[in-house]
Design a protein around this nucleic acid. Structure first.
Lengths: 214, 214
DNA sequence: TATTTGACCAACCGACCGTTCGTTTTTTAA
DNA sequence: TTAAAAAACGAACGGTCGGTTGGTCAAATA
């Protein structure tokens, strides 16, 4: 097979990034050397520096890939949102969260790596922007007061969306990344059902709500 | 001042661990060298190896300290639980979560370091045991069906306790460790109030609950 | 066809790593 | 007072790190 120069370059860069992602997600940033990356990518260390200015550029490029994937409509969690899983089908949202974490697992690792080894520098803006992204989604999806009329009073609908997203995504981060099965003391589908139930209708019986709260 | 041999040893070990905690939490495990730790502790590198077998022992010892602190009754979150914050005063639980993360911040960092640099090996049992610890707390605190009678049907009371704990602790981990202020698009006290409201009474108006769910 | 460009590699650099070890200083016990 | 033990030191070891250099060779360009 004959490869044009541009194809060769692209293929090498892809191999480098792929290897870097695999190794970073397993060993962390400082725990992974350029030599390992080059070896796994099947080329020399010098060549890595031909395609990328330094080690950190590998990391930030990978974070950029994840950033882009997260905003794509075919990102599992976005797909579930677009399909109307919120607010009625929280279980579907939970399944989408699981799929998102499972498929993008090595990328999710990068977030934790950034917190530990870069003091959260790169991913801070991602967490900062999450609320605004959800908010603008809700405004487009539920114009007017259609959603607010179905919601209980005392909170913004966006708080509910943020809450359920965080709960589900964190649950599967702990299950998949941390490697903890049955963290709630029951199997995952049951835990998802019970959590969804609480988020929908609250933990108290209606007649047993504590007094003095709005 | 004259120090007995045991006191000297204890003081040095303490200085080493304190320095290691500070540096690990800021730079990660591999990003911190024994030389740095020894320098910050004010003694020689050789002496570090006199008190600890290797670098990893520093890390596991610190995790052990955290483990022990978490089980102590004066750990802020435990104190709030013992004071009866669950299930009625979720806001108090939120404040206790904030205090727990703020005071033990460098130790909380160790958890993320373990996930990134040790594949979660050391902290897995901590997450695994959390549900069981809460469960036995509930059994002692609310014998019989006293709690279950106030709770809505469809979930174990322990699921509710796990859920609120995880939500609050994660919120402040993101705020304090990740460095993200106002992650829900509003100030923290308001976010805590809104989240508590949803956990108490659910996100739907009573008459607008989606059909087909238990 | 002559020349330039870009992909690539082996060898190398200085810095730093975790750890070892011979030695010195301080405390303890006889 | 003295000998053993513990605490502390710091140079040195073998190795790895991120990054650089100088060169080869095929593809693009003219």
């Amino acid at each position: 097979m004959k490869l044009t120069q541009g194809e060769k370059s692209e293929r090498s860069q892809g191999a480098i990034l792929q290897a870097a992602l695999r190794l970073f997600s397993k060993q962390g940033y400082r725990g992974t050397s350029i030599r390992e990356i080059a070896l796994e990518a099947g080329l020399s260390t010098g060549n890595v520096y031909h395609h990328f200015p330094d080690k950190e550029a590998l990391f930030t490029t990978l974070l950029g890939q994840y950033w882009q994937a997260i905003e794509q409509p075919d990102f599992p969690f976005n797909k579930a949102l677009a399909a109307g899983a919120f607010p009625d089908d929280l279980e579907a949202l939970a399944r989408a969260a699981e799929e998102s974490v499972r498929i993008y697992r090595p990328y999710v690792d990068l977030i934790y790596i950034d917190v530990v080894e870069f003091e959260g520098t790169h991913i801070r803006k991602f967490y900062t922007g999450m609320s605004e992204r959800f908010s603008s989604f809700l405004n487009h999806r539920f114009p007017g007061d259609a959603l607010k009329d179905r919601m209980a009073p005392g909170f913004h609908p966006n708080t509910a969306l943020m809450l359920v997203s965080r709960v589900f995504l964190q649950y599967f981060a702990v299950e998949i990344l941390f490697g903890v099965p049955n963290q709630f003391g029951m199997d995952t589908p049951l835990a998802m059902a019970e959590i969804s139930q609480i988020l929908r209708a609250g933990m108290f019986r209606q007649e047993a709500l504590p007094p003095g709260k709005p």
